[in-house]
Design a protein around this nucleic acid. Sequence first.
DNA 1: TGCCGGAATGTTAACGCTACCGCATACTCC
DNA 2: GGAGTATGCGGTAGCGTTAACATTCCGGCA
Lengths: 358, 358
Amino acid sequence: MRSSSRVEARGRARGGRQTGALTIEDVARVCGVSAMTVSRVLNDQPRVSTATRERVLAAVAKLGYSPNRAAQALASAGARRLCLIYTNPSASYLSELLLGTLQQTHLEHAQLLVEPCEDELDAVAVKRLVADGVEGLLLPPPLCEQPGLTALLSRHGMPAVAIAASCPPKGMSSVHIDDRSAAREMTAYLLSLGHRRIGFITGSADQTASHERLTGYREALAQAGVKFERAWLRRAKFTYRSGLKAAEQLLSSLRPPTAIFASNDDMAAATIAVAHRHGLPVPSALTVVGFDDTALASTLSPALTTVRQPIAEMAKKAVSQLLVEIRRHQSGQPPAALEETVPHQLIHRDSAAARTMK
Amino acid sequence: MRSSSRVEARGRARGGRQTGALTIEDVARVCGVSAMTVSRVLNDQPRVSTATRERVLAAVAKLGYSPNRAAQALASAGARRLCLIYTNPSASYLSELLLGTLQQTHLEHAQLLVEPCEDELDAVAVKRLVADGVEGLLLPPPLCEQPGLTALLSRHGMPAVAIAASCPPKGMSSVHIDDRSAAREMTAYLLSLGHRRIGFITGSADQTASHERLTGYREALAQAGVKFERAWLRRAKFTYRSGLKAAEQLLSSLRPPTAIFASNDDMAAATIAVAHRHGLPVPSALTVVGFDDTALASTLSPALTTVRQPIAEMAKKAVSQLLVEIRRHQSGQPPAALEETVPHQLIHRDSAAARTMK
DNA sequence: TGCCGGAATGTTAACGCTACCGCATACTCC
DNA sequence: GGAGTATGCGGTAGCGTTAACATTCCGGCA
């Protein structure tokens, strides 16, 4: 029904190809203005009278018109092609990353490629990306913290933005949270619950965020006058499995911690599993907190108290930054090297409780 | 360096806009053929001599040319706009879905929108999608099994493809595995390991896949002459949390099962957690198997024996199907209602073992 | 009255690619 | 040997949109 009225509306007559979709011309005809005017309205440009603007908007709404992105991209020469490189983060991290990236690239009319990358980003890989027409890279950790990366990329003239690297490489734009403060706040919260023996499980050594989180934890202890003990610290790798091992060691010690702060949610999940195995109910016998607030945190039982890192939002900002960098690069300017810190947030759920006296 | 040589190569002279990127014309000029011929080579079309073809490919490789997707989409009138609606599946399921969808939409030059949808898809939502220019829907469960959906969609002339619905709605294209056979095979495997008391945790009642998996399980028992007992069956909802409860009940019974078959990996993970809590090492004291083979399955400890459902691949096929449906719809043909069953696979890892005698 | 300037709108020509048609050349078949 | 018929390639005309320039309109001011 609707589609037939569309066809009538545009009068079929012209030969040629025809795709059947509504165009800006259809809207223009309905309003009795030119396509240009409609375009201006849709792009919020000035030089259109309020009356006309409203008429156009009404017609757009009524017809259900929406612009053809391909044509827009082509005409405005804005068809940037970005590539999100991913290694092997936790699935929930990846899906948030994807969702955010997708949304923003769509908004900014860019094309998104998504490429897996085991190990390192080397010259061969970069060359292949260049050959694929990729104009800029979105780099989540640990890729963005690979030594020598900046040099490699600048050699190939490939702009990039680091996502969630606590101490991003010099000269590269980045979006991240303040990992140190976040860890400090979470630790302070655990201290405020009365915990004094607080275990800490680190993330991978190859990510600056791991170090920052550890530093934040130690700062909070120091601030509270609690002396840090080596036995409370376990080094792991952000994976469930490595968390299992770390938690096992922490909980098998002579005087086990009453609270454990894991550097991400996956390892916190592992810690909860181990606690149960040891007959320690969470949170009554052991408090467990995580970091990231991925989907996992709320599906766990008990639901995880954690630090929210707004990954999707960070991904969006990274896309915008990358587009800026690409434009700068193409017009011969040096990288802007923007560094944006987005706010984190403590999320209180059910896995933390005041220390029980004993 | 490189970019300056590009600019020289195309001779700057013409006025107009210029975007600085390599075009098909550049390639054509280098090879001394027309743009058309280059286009044919790139699209694997016939009517090009082998010699010319090779010359063109060499030039493409040398220049690092890659076609502008926006222009391709525009010219071939192929800029279909699809929308993947997602509810709230497990994160790993979602990221696989996204990855597959992204890859294929890219390949077929379609635009992808990704929209969350709590609850049900109603007329308002569909209208909004139409207004957004969406031409077809990708529907993972449980959305695609919502009663009355086919009617709703056909009323708005919106083609759709059901992903992973075991018994897809009549008249809608779909991609799925044979859930029943998969469950039958997995159950047969457990029987072959000597297990006789095999617990089963179902998925949500609103998904046909749940019923099919249960049916497969019962068929395998029947085939082996093992009498099914009600106590072995727990109804859950595909979530970690619901799995926790189901597993708890199964393992607290008087004669607990020696093996538990959970209808997805999340619930299998929950089962392992509960087993540990009960002091039952997996797999030596209890065998646990899952379904889907999401990323979770291999990060778990012990790594999960499960059924692989190739979600990314299914998503790709669904995109192709949807594009077919959209083209049919726009040319006034009835839906093709393709139904494709992709092969599943038993993945043997470490969470299943032969029954220990006792 | 006539002319100027800026606001509102229109016209034209790209953007980079491919569909469609046309034109040669070579090859087959009575 | 002339009529069909493949094969290899090029020319032209769009696809739907926007940038850049052109035009109209109208109030105000000398």
